[in-house]
Simulated scan of single mutants.
Amino acid sequence: MAVWDKNSLWGLLFLLAGAVGQTVIYPFTSTCAVRGSTVTLPCTFTPLKSFKVNQTEVPLKIVRVLWCQNHRYCYTNTPSVYDSNSANINPRYQYLGDMKTNCTLQIRDVQQGDNATFRFRMEADHREGHFTNKTGVTVRVDDGSKMRIISSSDDETLSRGETVTLLCASGCTFHQLEVTWFKDNHALSDTGPSLHLSPLTAEDSGSYTCALKANMETVSEPYSLQVEAGNLDELTVIRLVLFSAHTLLIVTVASIIIKRTCCLQHRSRSAAES
């Protein structure tokens, strides 16, 4: 049985504390993204706060963060998609994190070359604080996926006054999506993944399609929406009756005034002639 001296025991405890206290966590280790879309890789990290040198606690500070592609350790000299110490970064890769706990990376306008495993690395002002989670997040790029339209209603034929939401979706899971919506082949102003139509009118009837804004090859199959006249509700009927009655009253009063005016003018002429 090995005999541990005091210094060896402290060293073992330090290693265990470092292994527990220093972490990088990816909520998911794989995802899928359509070419041209935006994908976000959530990430949180816990840096080592300090380490011991001859029983003296030495504080650590994170001075550099990196994201690399297809490298197991993401060392300093490894080509990185993001490096906090470099100004020469591809603008498609946006670091949404900080130097404390958040290490989230966002990839915009996903390309086929992003079909890879991405790993995060933190570096402190001493090598004892350097750490890489070798698990990483694997991104699978779907190059030929078509979008599809999902309706909040099971019926393609709806009544006037109802509400429906159309969702532009894909077989892939991604976090942010800018799409172009079309109605009867004419582009609409909406760019979000959902199109909310309320209250429905006859003008909403038509053929709807959607596609990723950055990749029009992903245009969906058409979705046909028909809006019928439907039954008038009680309030609408009351309003129509009141409007008709009001209009009839105005016409009647106007007719009486015109008739009396004509009679007075006729009497005036007769009196003048006699």
Rank of each mutant, 00 (worst) to 15 (best):
N77Q: 13
G129Q: 00
A272H: 15
C262D: 11
T163C: 13
V20Y: 14
V34A: 03
A211M: 04
V63Y: 06
C172N: 10
Q106I: 01
T173Q: 15
L235Q: 07
T252R: 13
S86A: 13
L225M: 05
W4A: 11
M216W: 02
T23A: 11
S37R: 04
G113A: 02
P79R: 09
R72G: 04
D233K: 08
D109L: 03
V237I: 13
T78R: 05
G161D: 03
C210T: 07
K52S: 14
E123I: 07
T247S: 05
P222M: 11
A245E: 08
I89Q: 04
K134I: 11
Q265E: 12
A245I: 07
Y75E: 15
Q226C: 11
N102Q: 03
T252F: 15
I238N: 10
I89G: 02
T201W: 00
L249C: 12
P193G: 10
R269G: 05
L41H: 05
T132A: 12
G230L: 06
L66F: 04
P91H: 02
S189P: 04
Q106R: 02
V137R: 04
S145A: 15
T252N: 13
V34M: 05
N70T: 01
L240G: 06
Q55I: 09
Y95M: 00
V137N: 05
G206T: 01
L235T: 06
A116C: 00
G113K: 01
D155C: 10
R140C: 10
I149L: 12
S152L: 14
D109K: 07
F28Q: 15
T191Y: 05
S8L: 15
T29D: 09
A272L: 15
T165P: 03
G36Q: 03
N102Y: 01
T138N: 13
T117G: 02
F28I: 11
E228L: 01
V34L: 06
I250A: 12
L225D: 03
D204C: 06
H71L: 04
R260N: 12
A17R: 12
T138Y: 10
